Amino acid sequence: MTSAQPGAKTVKQAIQWMLRLRESGHNPALQQQCEQWRGAHPEHEQAWQRVIRMHQDLDLRAIPGAGLVLQTLETSQRRLHRRQALKLLGGLAMVGTAAWLGNDLDALSGWTADYATSTGERRSFTLPDGSLMQLNTHSAVDLAFNGQQRLIRLKQGELMITCSQAVNMQRPLRVQTRDALLEVFDGRFVARQDSDCTRVSVSHGRVAIHLPGNELLQWIEAGQDWRLDAQGAQRLEHVDMDAMAWSEGLIVTRDMRLFDFLEQVSRYRHGYLGCSDEIADLRLSGVFRLEDPEQLLQLLPQTLPVRLRQRTRWWVRVEGLA
């Protein structure tokens, strides 16, 4: 069954819940009520994800003046009636559409997807067939489950799929990425859609790859990592990061370039994060927790000859020691 789009009434309810939570500060009772509302119907959860996604992505990077409007929303209980706040949020989405589309198409993908996560968020979902889908930071997917197929379209970001052969052996579970169609009956794998390729890692079972225009079927076995792009499929003999570790809230590196490490950390935070060219090739190995990217960055000077230059919370550059 294809996932239905949440109706306007449900989306409005989700906006109301967001405003109530923001206005109340830390209110465990209200948070529990919101969780109950989200769990009452799948449509509620879809609407909630889309509202949260929009709220987090409509920032100063996407819409001029959005920062001021969001500040107004945060103090809407004192300065606006709820109806005015809802109109303001709706108006922000409309007047900012051109800038939003022009500067961040990924934000639109998250808003229109069946399931999505915001920057820094990781979530797990049980699919209609009982399979487990985990979404990494800033990811979005659509589902097409019906009598003929079990299909997941990865629109952006990264997912982990765990499925069992005991569940509907007649039809494989398929994941469509920009570069290939993946098929599995029984196994666990990660697919990440980068700007120039799709990366696939299998930890259990095996996954079939269907490349556009290629009739040959390629299999990815357990323990293998592959890169898929317009040129074809390439097995990666050496990888510098555990592809599965994010599902446990970790980045696990093995002799990884500092530049590449910061590129991965930047996926879990807003703003600029980079390093100077002279230290880009420094290597690091270790286990790093993702729950607080800013605290994670503070560990770098303890393991490498570097320092952090921070103009604001959103602008951090790693430099060599003078």
Rank of each mutant, 00 (worst) to 15 (best):
M256D: 07
S203Y: 03
G157E: 05
Q218V: 12
Q193P: 04
G130V: 06
T162W: 01
F125R: 04
D255H: 15
T126A: 12
L159F: 07
G249F: 04
L228K: 00
A191E: 03
D196G: 05
R174D: 07
T177M: 06
L236W: 01
C197A: 15
R254V: 09
I220S: 01
A230Y: 02
M133E: 03
I209E: 01
D196L: 09
Q224C: 13
M160D: 04
F125Q: 04
T177E: 08
L216E: 15
A230M: 05
R174K: 13
R188V: 10
R174M: 14
Q148H: 15
P212M: 08
T162K: 07
K155C: 11
D179G: 03
M256Q: 12
N168M: 14
V167N: 12
P172V: 09
C163F: 00
V184G: 01
G147Y: 10
V141D: 01
N168K: 12
M256W: 08
D194K: 06
F259I: 14
Q234V: 10
W219I: 10
S124C: 12
E215Q: 14
R235H: 12
M256H: 08
H204D: 14
M256G: 05
L132K: 08
D255A: 15
T198L: 06
S139H: 04
A208R: 14
L181R: 10
N146G: 11
Q165H: 13
V141S: 02
I209G: 00
T177R: 03
R171N: 09
R227K: 12
S131F: 07
P172Y: 08
N168R: 13
R199T: 13
G147A: 15
T137W: 01
M241D: 07
H238C: 10
